[in-house]
Each structure stands twice: as structure tokens, then as C-alpha cells.
Design a protein around this nucleic acid. Sequence first.
DNA 1: GATGAATGAGGCTTCATTCAT
DNA 2: GATGAATGAAGCCTCATTCAT
Lengths: 221, 221, 221, 221
Amino acid sequence: MTVHSVVGERGGGDKRARILAAAERVFARRGFFAARVSEIAKDAGVADGTIYLYFKNKDDLLISLFEARMTQVNEALRVAIEGVPPGAQLHAFVRAYLQLVHDEPAAAEVLTIELRQSSKFMKEYENPQFADFLRLLGGIIAAGQERGELAEDIPSHIAARMIFGMLDELALAWVLAKKDATQRISGGAGGSKPRKFDIVRAADWVVALVATGLKKERTTP
Amino acid sequence: MTVHSVVGERGGGDKRARILAAAERVFARRGFFAARVSEIAKDAGVADGTIYLYFKNKDDLLISLFEARMTQVNEALRVAIEGVPPGAQLHAFVRAYLQLVHDEPAAAEVLTIELRQSSKFMKEYENPQFADFLRLLGGIIAAGQERGELAEDIPSHIAARMIFGMLDELALAWVLAKKDATQRISGGAGGSKPRKFDIVRAADWVVALVATGLKKERTTP
Amino acid sequence: MTVHSVVGERGGGDKRARILAAAERVFARRGFFAARVSEIAKDAGVADGTIYLYFKNKDDLLISLFEARMTQVNEALRVAIEGVPPGAQLHAFVRAYLQLVHDEPAAAEVLTIELRQSSKFMKEYENPQFADFLRLLGGIIAAGQERGELAEDIPSHIAARMIFGMLDELALAWVLAKKDATQRISGGAGGSKPRKFDIVRAADWVVALVATGLKKERTTP
Amino acid sequence: MTVHSVVGERGGGDKRARILAAAERVFARRGFFAARVSEIAKDAGVADGTIYLYFKNKDDLLISLFEARMTQVNEALRVAIEGVPPGAQLHAFVRAYLQLVHDEPAAAEVLTIELRQSSKFMKEYENPQFADFLRLLGGIIAAGQERGELAEDIPSHIAARMIFGMLDELALAWVLAKKDATQRISGGAGGSKPRKFDIVRAADWVVALVATGLKKERTTP
DNA sequence: GATGAATGAGGCTTCATTCAT
DNA sequence: GATGAATGAAGCCTCATTCAT
């Protein structure tokens, strides 16, 4: 199953998928609130009214998009850690996640930015797929703790949150930097618009930080 | 300088501050897009039109709020690490940040959720205060690397991003959990609505993770 | 010819009649403007598009319905007064009309309520069947006046209008009361939702009022 | 209190009244469903949005209009029968009602046609003013029955309904005839579009019919 | 400066109607 | 003839912003 088959492509077969793919592009381009249903329709090559044959309303479009993408992300992550030795699963997970961000920047942008939108989506909407995601990541950590490989002073679900926070922030920084081709390569800690960096390579940084921290003198055999 | 003097209080003196404080409450309650200028005016005890004597428009209200809060956050963080030995500054920084989140949940909600929002603010808006924040945090890390205390394999500005990601995610989880008093204390990695936890104590977890990672066998003198 | 054969039945044969019957049910249930063509189609067991094979548009559906029903009403009324002595024809007419209302409440509701509706139907639409109805009733009165049995101070067509007004209002009151089974049997002149009464028996009241009025001691020459 | 002061005039003072007056004109002209809020606004000389400062929505406009008008009608009728000898009150009531129709044809049209509109208004909407109207008329009849002047074989509230039916039908016929200046003066019982007649004079016809019926030789005891 | 009634542009959505199959 | 997915015009309503008082 490819990424595109889930959300649909421009030349895709069924309308629902094409609308969802268009919604993703437009939400990424404008943001949910600034996105116009008519623009999504135009982008999908359907009439405005057609959207309402497949989705209840504009909100449903975002929720459906999120569910489709998040389900797919979870699926890909599960595949990525399958057959991997327990001790290497966290690395595999992180790398796979950032690879997905790299491959589907529009999806990453919607997941990263739009879904924080409080009212309708993080508060009222229960969001079971994101819970799945956290459960998957938390499970890897908890298993490491049970095997005695990972310290138990941090609750696994909190650790999962923290790792997700890192990944999400890196994804956001990368996605926003990507937007701006005229980005000045100013040195230092940069402006609010971060410089471009290799998001896939960043997986190693995340794993390094999570595994052994920043302190220099560390692991002894 | 107190927190309130920056953003204003209900019984406060000047109108500008009262409007800003009201905006923060309403943005936290409804989200930026769902917030109504008239509700902010009512909450501030002024007429709708009065808001436009102090702010250019609704966007300006959010930007001003963000700048005031972020300036104050940076100020508080600078104070928190002042006079602290270099090796302990990161801990002080993290603890101070999460304490601020704890003390001003409405502010935390606006900074955490609303500012990620759409195009208008993370893309078009330059956001120098957030850059300051990252520079401050990145500087602490860079200094540690220069002193040879911290590993240099992760660029300091990337490390700063990752740490901010953790802090932001914890703040978000805590703020959203706070919203829902009827939260079931179900076990496991939880649902999308995280269980309540002690946000201030979480500072230790962040520092532990950042310092030495999750791996069990670690630092030897 | 039965009532149903004109407007069609659920299990009926040809599609046109089934659509018309469904339209009557839906118009009675929702009102013309709130009725959805798709609901009529569903109720008739045909596809939406099929309706347009038999009717020009939604308006045509109501007009056709009205013409079919009114033609049938006029037919039934003509039959009802056939062979009846001239002096008893008015009574027969009134009784037959209210009996039809009783037997076909959905039809009565459409004729009574929907057709008064806006411009489209009472203003722009010529409505020859209703003219027939008034001509039939007016003819009975005019004949009575010519025979010297009825006073001539009221023009026969005005008298016909007044009698129709009574019948129509009684039908409306009865139909609307029928809607609400939980009707409180509060005394007095009632609320806007009238109490249930025997619509067929009401024929005697109409005839009594029309024949001799309300005055108790009737004038003697 | 004049008629206009209740519903408002074009050059009137407050906006609410002007909007209500415009709504009455537009509803009479187009019918409720075909009426456009923007046309009402234009007719009232206000912006579209202004209407929503005074009324909740389009439905509220019709309900408010009905309540204002019906309250005023009831008031006028009460004044019309005040001080009139009991035996003459019915005549006074009928004449006053038809005079109101004559003086305010747009109001009559809205009351007569639009309010039959089933779903929203006769079914869901309780309509206390119309109940008042019926109570007033029914009270006059009941009083006549108690004084022994009127026959008691017809329940007073049914008699009230029947009289209202006559008045309403005459009003409708007159209002619709008025619409069409090019009306052919075709003889006989006419088409569906009735010929013009003197609506005020019609009061005598109604009273004659109600009082003594159509029978020429009236029954002697 | 302060007010808040008024504005009016513009979006989401509905639904009668069409037409390729 | 029958279908029903697709169309797209058009309306109600919201709400940020203005400006006369």
C-alpha cells in the first residue's frame, strides 16, 4: 500500500480520494481556516457540491484526512519495526517517522500544524489514531524498561510524549524551512524560520539524544 | 516585573493591558479563529471599537500577545539562569519554563496551540522573540559543548529545537489534560486526552533524558 | 374510480401515479418548500431522475397533484349531488366534501395548506379546477336563488366563497389537530392547535349556519 | 396607535420597525420562501447584516411580523366592539376585520397566505395571538348564546372558526384579485382569480349569512 | 478617547436538475 | 425507460471593522 493510495492522487480513480488529496494540499498551503472549500473542489477537479457527497462538512474533511494519514503512519511504523530486534526498534521507529515526513511534506504539515488547532480537533475530537501512535511508541519504551535496557525513572508514556515532541518539532522546523526557498542562510541559532537541514539524518540525532543524552562522558561497558 | 503587568489584569489600569489579558483568556478558551473580537471586548469591559484604538486588527492582537508573553518568558528565563553555574543552567532553564507553564496555563495554551496555527503566524510572521528563545537555549548548549561537557555530534541549534519540542509537547499534554476535569485515569499510554501529571516535576524527566538519555548503564566518572 | 387510482398507491402499477402519491405524502409531511425531491423519489421507490421523466419540475409535481385531486374532488361532488333534490344539494355537497377530507387527510392537507402558498401557485397559476369547484357550489346556490328558496342579497359566487372558506377552515383545523396526538383537551376557545372534533358531523353545523344562520328566533314575515 | 406605528414605515424612526415593514412588503410580494433577506434589507434601506441585529433569522422575521400584526388586529377589534351593544358586536367585529384587510392589504396578504405555511408556522409555532383572536370571536358568540339570542346547536368555538374561515377566504379572494389589474371582468363564478369586489361591503354579506342564513322564508316557531 | 450600531463582503452548504451509463 | 452521481447556482448568515456621536 503506497502513501498515495490512502489519501488519493490527482489522477486517481475514485473521487473521495481525490478530494482528500486536494484537501491536504490546500490545508497545507493555506491552513484549515483560511482554506476555501471551493479551492479544494477546484484542486480536486470536482464541483463544490460533490465534496458534500463524500464528507459531512469542512470539519469532516480535516478529521477524515487526519484519520487516513495517521492510520497510514501507524501502519508504516508497525511495518518498520516488524522483525527488528527489540533494542533497535526505537531507532527504526524514529527513522521511519522522519522518513515519512520527508516523503510527504504536505501530510506532515497538516498533521504537524493544523491538528494542534485546539477547539474543534484536540479538545472535542477524541483522536484515537494519535492515541495509537503514542501507544506504539510507549510500548517500545516500556518493553525496553522491562528488559532492563532502559531506565525506569521516566514513565514510558511520558517518554513517548517527549520523543514525539522532538519529532514533531523537527518536522515543523523542516517543513516551514522548506516553504521558503529564499531563506537566508544566516548563521547562529537562526531566526524563526529555521535553515534547511536533512530531516532523515536528524533521526540519528534524536536517537543519540534519547539513548545516551547530551552528556559527554557516558556509557561504560 | 510580574507576569500580569505584561499582559494586563482584569482590574488592571490601562486599557491596552486589559484587552490583551482578555484576548489571552478568550483565545485560550475558544482558539484564535473561533474567538470573537466582541467577546474579547466584553471580557475586557470595553467597547468593540476600543480594541481598534490599541491594535491594528485581530491578527495584531495575537501577535502582540505573543510578543508580550514571549518577551516576558525570555526575560524570566534569563533571570532564572543568571548566576547559576554553567553546568546547571540547562536544568534551571527547563524548570523555569515548565514553572511558567504551570503558573500561566492560559498563556501556555495560546503559545502552545494557537501559535502553531496557520500560515499567518508561523509562515508570514517573523517571530523574533521565538528566535530569541531558541538562541538562549541553544547558547546554553553551545557553551556546554565548548566547555567539553556536552557532546558535539548534535548541532546546538538542533538540540535546542528538540528540547523545545519536548517542553512544548509536555505543556500541550498538560494543558489539554487540565481542560477535562472528568478525565478517566485509565492506565496505559492513555487516550488522546492525556492524564494529568505534575508539569513541574516533569522538568526532572526532561533534564534526565537530555543529560544522560534513557539507556540504563551510563555515566562513569 | 377510487381515490387511489387517481393519485396512485404505494404498491401501484405505473410510476407516475406512485410518484404523485409519494409527493402527496411528503408534501403533507414537510410542506412544499421543505419537501425534498429526493425524499419523494425514495418514498416512491424510484430514482431521483425518474421523477423528471414524468414531471417537468418540482412545481409541476404540486400542480399536477392539485389538478388530479381537485378533478377527483369535483367528480366526487358531482356524483354526490346527482339525483339529489335541488333543495338538498347544498347539504349533500357539504357532507361529501368533508367526508373526502376525512377519508384523505394527506390530500386535504396539501389542498388546504400548501396551495395557499406563495405566488407560484395562487397568483401565477390559473387553477381551473378550483374555478370549477366554485362554479359547482355557486351553481347550487344560484339555482336556489332562482327557485326563490334562497335570498338574493348575497351574490351567489360570494356565497360560494364564504361556504368554501368555512369548509376549508374546518378542514385545516381538523387536519392540524390530527397531527398532534398529545393534544391537551384544554377548554375554552382553544389554543392555536384546535381540539379534535368530528369533521363529518361538522357538515350539519355548516349547513345549519348556511341555511338559517345563528339567530335563534327566526324572522317571520 | 396607528397601524403603521406597529409594523413601521418607510420613513419611520427606528430600524426594527422599518425592517418589519419592509419584510411585510416583500413577503406579500414574493411569498416567504421566495423572499430574499437581501431584498428586505434593500427595501428597508439597511445593510443585510443589520437585520440580524434585530431578528434572530428569517423565520423570526415572519413570526415577529405575525405577532405584531395579530396583536394589533386583536387590539383594533377589541376597540371596535367596546361600548357596542352585545347584539351588535358580531357585526362590528366583522366590519372592523374587513376594514383592516382593506386598509392594510400587504398585512392581510401575509396573514392570509403565508401563515398557513405549514411546517414551521402552523405546526411548530404555537401562535398565541391567533388563539386570542379566536377567543375574542368565540366569546362574542358564546355571550349571544348565553343571552338566548343565538342558537346553541353549534359550539361557539366551531362557529368562530367558521366565521373566521369566511373572513379569511374573502380577504384572500380580494387580495389576490387586487394583485391583477388586468383582470378580465369575465362573468359567472369567475376563474381562480376572482373579480374585484368591495371588501368592506362584504361585511354585510357575512353578517347576513351568519345571522339568518341563506334561506328565504325563515322558520317560524 | 470611547462607544457600539451599522456595515457588507464572502463562505459554507443545500438541493433541484441533468446526463452519461 | 431508469438510474443516481455529479453539478453549480444561489442564499442565509457571520463577524471583523468602521465611524458618527
